[in-house]
Simulated assay, not measured.
Amino acid sequence: MKGTQTYRNHKLVNIFDKLGLIENFGTGMPRTFDAYKNEDRKPVFEATDNFFYVHYLI
């Protein structure tokens, strides 16, 4: 999660980009951490072979 960017479905990423649903590739997680820097709850990201989870620590 330190600047590494991978896509599980490149075709889906290209479609979302063409529809204007992606602002900048690879910026979502850093922006999420930045948004929570002054909050008590922190997001936790977990990736498995099949899923990507986001949950919060209190």
Rank of each mutant, 00 (worst) to 15 (best):
L19R: 04
P30A: 01
E46C: 09
D17R: 14
R31V: 03
H55W: 04
P43E: 11
E39G: 10
R41N: 09
K42D: 03
K42P: 01
R41L: 08
A35M: 12
N38W: 12
V44I: 13
G20C: 01
N50W: 09
T48R: 03
H10V: 08
V13N: 00
R31K: 13
P43S: 13
I22S: 00
I22Y: 00
T32H: 02
D34I: 03
H10P: 01
V44P: 00
N9Y: 05
T6F: 05
N50K: 15
D40E: 11
I15F: 04
Y36Q: 04
Y36D: 02
R41V: 11
T6M: 06
L21V: 00
L19N: 02
A35W: 08
F45S: 07
M1T: 10
Q5H: 13
K37E: 12
T48K: 03
N24L: 10
I58R: 10
R41F: 09
K2I: 04
I22E: 00
G28W: 07
F25Y: 09
N50I: 08
K2N: 12
V13R: 00
L19F: 05
K37T: 10
I15Y: 05
F25I: 14
G28Y: 14
R41C: 08
N14R: 03
N14C: 02
D49R: 11
T6E: 07
N9H: 06
K42R: 12
Y7N: 02
V44Q: 07
T48Q: 04
V54L: 06
N14P: 00
P30G: 01
N9A: 06
R41Y: 08
K2L: 06
T4I: 12
F45G: 02
N50P: 01
